[in-house]
Design a protein around this nucleic acid. Structure first.
Lengths: 146, 146
DNA sequence: ATTAAATAATTGTATGTACAACCAAACTAT
DNA sequence: ATAGTTTGGTTGTACATACAATTATTTAAT
């Protein structure tokens, strides 16, 4: 038995599906706590940040960028539009998403929470290790999605 | 700009929350495809495998093991019990979970799908890299959950 | 012994996400 | 030009998961 196996009795801990989901749930719980002060759950905050970084982005691109299905993106965007934080400009079959001024006002708070989240997990995991892990996960993501 | 940044234009790709969730969704889609032939979605298959590996396991332990909340485990277990694949033996406030014979019959098929899943992502990511990544994620998980 | 605190599990309810079906717009090929 | 195909986006619906509140059991403290 390998020494690194001692911490985990179950052989299923060697499964990427299992570990990815467990880690995602832990990170989501943490992100929910950090973003709570903004009034948004993490996915909504992420949409706002992404639209802020790429004004005019289309739902399709949000979808591939966040690895969410188009229907999920529709739901996220329509709720944020309902709350007056962004608006959709439809031309033909394509749609452009822009922040409203009300939405822009929130970016500061959201980015601050995002910074807090980064600090929090970096403290626990170690900043360098966290960066490295994130990078490796992104590499894997690239390979898994061509 | 670092060379490894070229693939990802957004600074948010450096966020562990983001990457963990994106990877988890991609892996879940893949796992759903592989487990489809068993008639279970991956979480249910995982419960069955875990109970098979640790007969008599308690919901609480399943919960911490899978990083799922107790209520979620209750739902998973009650559906599997309803389908006659496992049964709960309640003594006092604690519960022991066992596979039924019907449940045991399914283990073979499930483990085979699990192997297919392993092969599939190993082929895409590279077996060594996949193992390494899984290990690093488990290490991070340990640190994030004390 | 009796009360208080902690723990295991469950229930009602809400939310995030996905799938399947669909519509409308834009290509493509005849 | 027109029919077929592809693509962006939306809707109805279903499911996995979480949160808050609750019950029941066990442990701890007086």
């Amino acid at each position: 038995m390998h020494p690194e196996m001692t911490k985990c009795e179950s052989k299923y801990c060697g499964c990427l599906y299992y570990s990815a989901n467990a880690l995602a749930r832990v990170m989501t719980r943490m992100a929910e706590e950090e973003f709570a002060s903004t009034g948004f759950s993490p996915s909504y905050a992420f949409v706002l940040m992404t639209v802020n970084a790429q004004p005019g982005i289309q739902p399709k691109d949000l979808s591939t960028h966040m690895q969410l299905t188009p229907s999920t993106v529709t739901r996220l965007v329509e709720k944020l539009e309902f709350r007056g934080l962004l608006k959709r400009k439809i031309t033909g079959r394509s749609t452009e998403i822009q922040l409203t001024s009300k939405g822009q006002e929130l970016i500061g708070v959201i980015e601050k929470s995002w910074g807090n989240l980064y600090e929090r997990y970096s403290n626990q995991i170690g900043e360098e290790e966290a960066k490295e892990l994130t990078q490796k996960m992104n590499d894997a993501l690239d390979k898994l999605t061509q």
